[in-house]
Design a binder for these strands. Structure first.
Length: 232
DNA sequence: GCGACAG
DNA sequence: ATCTTGTCGC
């Protein structure tokens, strides 16, 4: 596990990472603070090879949902997967991808594959990166990290509160009939009702919102290129 | 001490 | 996340 000596920002021990999250939490905004009319929405997803972390950020025009751009970030893996510290593992590659998007094409709203505030310290990857990139963000996870919920009716758009320590931190949302719900939670600069609205507004026949679904697909493609002998 | 545990 | 073919079901 190479130490990132030239980048103290991400070169942390798990204990230091926890303290960083606790301090970043002070900057979290859980009220709607989005542009009057959101025109660009993005999706973030990561993939890995033995040594490399790859992040892809897609950019879609909203509400038409047409893919107009995507950027890739690739850096050496520097941190293991530890539940609750996902942002430390994926952050560097995501920042690299973000830096590769022309400023004028940077999304007004970002969807992440993982939790927002539905996290032990209220700082899942969507919240963490939302604060660092200073963008409204939403966490859409395929599985629960923390919290519980009542059964969700098997109807498109049905949802139930996700409760953790007596607080509503997100929602289990049925984005597709006959498929397990996804777990939506506010990342940064957005409320839960609005996060649910945008999630349902970007779903097109699949379980995941289009921005993250496409980012996942592109990350897989790029990983195969690396695995099949292309160095870069 | 025993489970739970995003990607 | 990743390793991987066929297979059940709509």
């Amino acid at each position: 596990m190479p130490r990132r000596e030239n980048c103290p920002k991400w070169d942390l021990t798990p204990e230091e990472a926890v303290r960083w999250q606790e301090s970043l939490r002070q900057h979290l905004v859980l009220e709607d603070d989005l542009p009057p009319s959101v025109r660009l929405v993005g999706g973030v997803d990561s993939g890995y090879t033995d040594t490399q972390a790859i992040a892809v950020i897609t950019v879609f025009v909203y509400p038409e949902l047409e893919l107009i751009h995507h950027a890739i970030g690739q850096v050496p893996v520097h941190f293991p997967y530890i539940p609750g510290l996902l942002a430390i593992r994926e952050g560097p590659a995501i920042e690299a991808a973000w830096g590769n998007i022309p400023p004028e094409r940077r999304p007004d709203l970002l969807f992440f594959d993982g939790q927002g505030i539905a996290h032990p310290r209220g700082m899942g990857i969507a919240s963490h990166m939302g604060v660092l990139l200073d963008r409204p963000s939403i966490g859409v996870a395929k599985r629960i990290l923390v919290g519980h919920h009542e059964p969700v009716p098997d109807e498109q758009g049905a949802w139930r509160p996700l409760v953790y320590r007596g607080k509503v931190v997100g929602a289990a949302v049925r984005t597709k009939v006959g498929v397990k719900p996804v777990y939506v939670s506010p990342g940064h600069r957005i409320s839960l009702p609005t996060a649910i609205e945008y999630t349902l507004a970007t779903v097109r026949g699949y379980k995941l919102p289009e921005p993250t679904r496409l980012a996942d697909k592109l990350a897989r493609q790029w990983r195969r290129k690396l695995a099949s002998g292309v160095r870069k």
